[in-house]
Design a protein around this nucleic acid. Structure first.
Lengths: 261, 261
DNA sequence: CGCGTCATTGACCGCAGTCAAAATAAGTGG
DNA sequence: CCACTTATTTTGACTGCGGTCAATGACGCG
């Protein structure tokens, strides 16, 4: 470990609030099963850079992110790395029925995960159809989420992608906080705990471009930059504007002409 | 219907060969259940542009693509459309347990689908755990596939994305054809049946840029363009080269310096 | 205090988005 | 069957975003 720890301690890009999916899943298990499961849960802490699962592995454990930030990464033969997904608190990862991973999972920040033996989890799922159904729905949700990201990353301009990214994080936080309208107007604090270079890979850009994008958003008054890892979202609407419209299109639509009439 | 039909009749971006997932799924059902299911299957043909599922719907049918090409599309409030996924033959679509769709599904080319009542399918899945497990694995595979696309679409250059796209299609076709090595050397024919403008939206580019990219690949000898909808892949290796490396990086790495030592 | 890491800023330039127009193909009506 | 219209792809010229390279600044650490 050579790298500094941006924000030591607990990190949140989403926190185990009412939206805690694992909690919901646990509650779908009938009492005796749930106890068998919780007895086997282990809390593991790890440093940034730790590789939890290697590409091609079929690990015997499944995991649930408690704190920090994990990344799903693909490594090309020539050595370049791509980040194809992020795992924040309340996210799960794992494979079932001897499927193997098609990517690496590594800690992008110091993190904590809850692990559980894969075979036990599978057995219990089979014994509790209600839980299995809930789990399947979760999977489908994640599939949708992955496709949402396609939309985000499909945006041609970097500012757009950055704004979309911050927007997703904001919404996630707001949802976790509960839906009380009061919270909507006060500045929303986001602590990222991901290095510029990593975020750049994820958003399909360079660290330099991200820097420009963040500062552009700051100058427009949509966010405030406290330090490279800590932001306040001061104008959610404005952020949505940057996310949706091209910058070039100020009062005019960028291209209304590419849909069928 | 005002638009021409690029290639009337059967279309294949993948054909129901040994990789036919639906077939495999069907076979996982025990005899009596399978018959109940097949009795309810309906074959439906539709014209290009048909909307099968509207964003937000919870349709009573699930579908399986027999021929043609469907697209998952998202519509932004300002009217712009994004294609976030393609459904080719052997692909399935549907929601379960009252989940609603988060995108529209429409035919990008004249297509045929096999439909099946959602509730029946769900019931049968519950009665046949083996099939349910198979189905769950399929879902997870699709999740991985969606992330693969993230990698493809993350490529900075258009040629890269186009090459990756063709590569995925090629591999899919080869897999369907069986793994005999003989087929690897002979030119592989790809019939796309997707208009440039649609493909452009999917790959996050403009139709003009695609045109340039295709012809760049053709000049490099990787593909041959028979007509705008019909290609021969003459050099799979070369295609992989374009997909992986930046063009700029000929004999030199573009940026080996952004991984930890 | 010097060094390494990382974010930021500036200068340069290439890829691709944009606008415009030509070329090709398909469809229509005489 | 041909002239005309329409839809779509292709090509060209221009411009701007962002990738690239290089330098500076900020911060933590040995």
């Amino acid at each position: 470990m050579t790298r500094k720890t941006p924000n030591p301690g607990v990190v949140k890009m989403g926190d185990g609030g009412p939206d805690d999916r694992f909690q919901r899943l646990l509650e779908a298990f009938p009492e005796p099963l749930r106890d068998r499961l919780t007895a086997e849960l282990k809390r593991v802490a790890m440093a940034e850079g730790t590789v939890l699962v290697e590409d091609g592995d079929t690990p015997s454990q499944i995991g649930y992110v408690l704190s920090g930030l994990l990344g799903m990464t693909k490594h090309l033969p020539d050595g370049r790395r791509h980040i194809i997904g992020l795992l924040a608190p309340t996210d799960m990862y794992g494979r079932f029925h001897e499927q193997q991973f098609s990517h690496r999972i590594e800690a992008l920040a110091p993190s904590e995960v809850l692990t559980c033996p894969r075979d036990l989890f599978e057995t219990l799922l089979r014994e509790a159809p209600a839980a299995e159904r809930l789990f399947l729905i979760d999977m489908l949700d994640e599939l949708d989420a992955a496709r949402e990201w396609l939309l985000v990353l499909g945006g041609p301009k970097v500012v757009q992608r950055v704004a979309s990214f911050l927007l997703v994080l904001s919404r996630r936080k707001l949802r976790a906080r509960g839906r009380d309208a009061a919270a909507h107007d006060q500045p929303l604090n986001l602590r990222l705990d991901i290095r510029r270079a990593d975020l750049a890979q994820y958003l399909g850009a360079r660290a330099e471009s991200l820097s420009r994008a963040f500062h552009e958003l700051a100058e427009a008054g949509a966010i405030r930059i406290n330090d490279p890892y800590d932001f306040d979202v001061t104008d959610l609407e404005g952020l949505a504007y940057f996310a949706g419209h091209d910058l070039a299109a100020d009062s005019d639509y960028p291209g209304p002409g590419d849909r069928d009439p």
